[in-house]
Design a protein around this nucleic acid. Structure first.
Lengths: 343, 343
DNA sequence: CTGAAAGCGCTAACAC
DNA sequence: GTGTTAGCGCTTTCAG
C-alpha cells in the first residue's frame, strides 16, 4: 500500500534550495500570507526544479483539513445516479476536491457499516449520500454526528441538508399531459420502494386528483433487472388501461416490451411515458415521451451545498434546470383504430 | 474544508481509558503484533466507548501508506466504463481501499494536468486509468514515474501493466457468426479513435480475412451523442450492405435507427450486431445480437493487478469471464423476402 | 514580511 | 508482550 518508491522531495528540500525557511515555502504553497516577490520566485523555481508535491497526509494532519468528498450510493449504474455522480464530480473537481465513490453493498446494516467505515476511515471533507434508493437512506442514519453530510435525490430524510429535484412537479406535468390527451385515468408503475419514487407518485396522484380522475392502485417494480416486462404483460391483460406513467425511462421501456409481448401496441392501444429522458429514449421505438430532468445539475448543486455546509455558510441558492416535458411518440389520444402520429 | 467539528478522540485518549500505552493501542488497531487478551479487550472497549476512529492522515503520514485507489477516465457514463468502474470499486472495497473517481475534463494537456493534480495531491496507493478513450491514453503519459499505475481496457500503451479484455477475439467470433449466416462481407462502424476500437476492428478484420471476404473501409463514429444515426442513414443508401458490425451496442442501436430512417429493415434487409451486451439490448426491437463481455470482471482484475503491483508481486493470474456470443434477432441470413426468425 | 519552534495523531523502531 | 521514544512532512502560532 505504499505511495511511491523514491522518497519525494520535502518542504525542507525546497526551502534549502530556495534559501528560505520552510515556513515561507508553506506560505507560497497555500498563499496564506504575503511573501516578497523575490522569495516567491525563488520558491516557485525550487518547487518546479524539484518537482515537489506537498504530501497531502502531512498537510491534512497539520491543517486539519481534507479535500475529498465522499459519495455513497446504492447503485451507480442507472442513468440518473450516474448523471448525479458525474455532476458531483464535476463541481468537486472545479473546487479542487477529489471525489470518492463507494457503492453500498446491500441494504443490511453490516454491509452498510462496512462501506461506511471505508469512507469514515479516510480524511474526508464531507459526504454526499444519494437517497434515491433504500440503501442510501439506510446509510444516512448510520453516519455519525460531526460528519458534514448532504443528501441528494429522493425526499428529505432527516435534519441534514437535502438537495432535491422537483420530481413531483415534473411527474404531475407529464401525467396532466396524458390526461389532456383524453385518457380518463393513468396507471402508475413506481421504480422501487424508495423515497424518490414517492415524489413521482405524489405528482402522478396530484395530477389525477386535479383532473378529478380515478386513482388506480400503484404498481411497484422490483429491483430485478427486467421486472417491468412482467408488469407490462400484466397490464396488457387489462383492456381498460390506456395510459401508463412509469417511474423511469428504462422502466417504461420494459413495460412497453411487456405490453408488446401481451399483444398491445404503443401508443395506439396504450400510451406509455417515462421519466428522466434517458439517452436512448429518443431512439426507442416508439420514441418515448418523458420529462427531462437535470440530474447532472442536481449533482452540481449537491456538491455546492456541501461546500456551503463545510464552510458554515448555508443558504446560498443554487439552481439547476427545471423539468422539461419531452413529447415524442409513445403517448397518444386514447383512440382504438388508426396509427396516425400523435400530437 | 475541515473534517468535523468536535475534536475527535485520539490514541492517547484510548490508551488512557484502557490503561495501556499508545503503542499497544496502535497494535490492536492494526493487528501488527500480539497483544495479551486482557489488554486487547480493554483497548477494544475503550475504542467503542469513545467511538474512536483513527485519523487517517496521521496514520498515512506515519506509515507511508495510503488506501485510496484513484481511477481516471474520460467518460464514466457509458455502459462499459461504468461497469468497469463498478468492478474496480467492488474489488477495492473488499480489499479495504476507497476508490476515487475523476473524469478527465478534456483531452488537452491542461485539463488533463488539472485532473491529474487533484489525484496526485492526495495520498493515493495507486491509479488505474481507463485507456479505452483518447483522454485516458493521453493522461497515462503525464503520470509521473513512481506512481503505481495500471491501465485497463483498450490496448496496452506503455510499460505499465495493462489489463485487457479479449476484444479482438470476441469481435472475431461475432463477425464470423455473421459470415456464417451467409453474408459475403460485413461493414464495421468503430466507436471512436481509441485503442479499444482498434481491438474490435482487428477482430472484425481477422474474421473477414479468415473467410476470404472483402474488407470494406471502416466507418468511424464521432464523439457526438447520436452520431451512429447519420451513419445508419448513410449505410441505408448502399444497397449492397447486408451486415454491419458496430463497436458497441448503443452504437448499433443508433445505426439501426438510422437504417430505419433510411427505409431499410433489420434484420430482413440488413443485419446489425453490437458489442458488449448492454442491458437494453435484449429489449431493443429487434433484440440485438451481440457479444457479452465481462466488464465488471475486468474492473475486478484491474484492481487486483494494481494491488499486486503495489505489493511488488506481479504475475498472479486473474481471470474474468470470456466473451459470450448472444444471439438474438438483429442478425439473419441475407435473404430479401420473408421475416422468419433467424437461427 | 520572515524564521524558529511547537505540534497535528499516529506508527515503528528500540529497549525492556 | 509492553512501554518509550522518535519522528512522518506539513501548518501555524509566535516573536522579531
Amino acid at each position: 500500500m505504499s505511495q511511491s518508491n523514491a522518497s519525494n522531495p520535502t518542504v525542507d528540500d525546497v526551502a534549502r534550495l530556495a534559501g528560505v525557511s520552510i515556513a515561507t515555502v508553506s506560505r507560497v504553497l497555500n498563499g496564506s500570507a504575503r511573501v516578497s516577490d523575490d522569495r516567491l520566485t525563488r520558491v516557485r523555481a525550487a518547487v518546479n526544479e524539484l518537482g515537489f508535491r506537498p504530501n497531502s497526509a502531512a498537510r491534512s494532519l497539520a491543517s486539519r483539513r481534507a479535500s475529498i468528498v465522499a459519495v455513497l450510493a446504492g447503485t451507480t449504474l442507472t442513468f440518473e445516479q450516474a448523471e448525479i455522480i458525474r455532476g458531483i464530480e464535476e463541481s468537486a473537481r472545479e473546487a479542487g476536491y477529489l471525489m470518492s465513490l463507494t457503492a453500498l453493498g446491500g441494504a443490511d446494516d453490516d454491509s452498510i457499516d462496512q462501506s461506511l467505515s471505508l469512507v469514515l476511515d479516510q480524511a474526508i471533507a464531507g459526504v454526499i449520500v444519494l437517497t434515491s434508493d433504500p440503501a442510501g437512506v439506510a446509510t444516512l442514519h448510520r453516519i455519525p454526528a460531526g460528519i458534514f453530510t448532504v443528501t441528494v435525490a429522493g425526499s428529505p430524510e432527516t435534519v441534514v441538508p437535502h438537495v432535491p429535484l422537483h420530481d413531483s412537479g415534473a411527474a404531475e406535468e407529464l401525467v396532466a399531459y396524458l390526461l389532456g390527451l383524453g385518457h380518463t385515468t393513468v396507471r402508475c408503475v413506481g421504480v422501487r420502494a424508495s423515497p424518490n419514487e414517492d415524489e413521482r407518485i405524489v405528482g402522478w396522484r396530484r395530477a389525477l386528483r386535479a383532473a378529478g380522475a380515478a386513482i388506480p392502485e400503484v404498481i411497484h417494480s422490483s429491483e430485478e433487472p427486467n421486472s417491468g416486462c412482467a408488469i407490462g404483460r400484466q397490464l396488457a391483460r387489462s383492456p381498460d388501461v390506456t395510459a401508463v406513467f412509469c417511474g423511469s425511462d428504462v422502466l417504461a421501456m420494459e413495460v412497453m416490451h411487456g405490453l408488446a409481448e401481451g399483444g398491445r401496441s404503443v401508443p395506439d392501444e396504450v400510451s406509455v411515458v417515462g421519466f428522466g429522458d434517458h439517452p436512448l429514449s429518443a431512439l426507442w421505438c416508439p420514441a418515448l415521451t418523458t420529462v427531462k430532468q437535470d440530474f447532472a445539475g442536481l449533482g452540481n448543486r449537491a456538491f455546492l451545498v456541501l461546500e456551503g455546509v463545510i464552510a458554515g455558510s448555508l443558504g446560498r441558492g443554487f439552481i439547476s434546470d427545471g423539468p422539461l416535458l419531452v413529447i415524442r411518440d409513445s403517448a397518444a389520444p386514447p383512440v382504438k383504430s388508426s396509427g396516425a402520429a400523435p400530437v
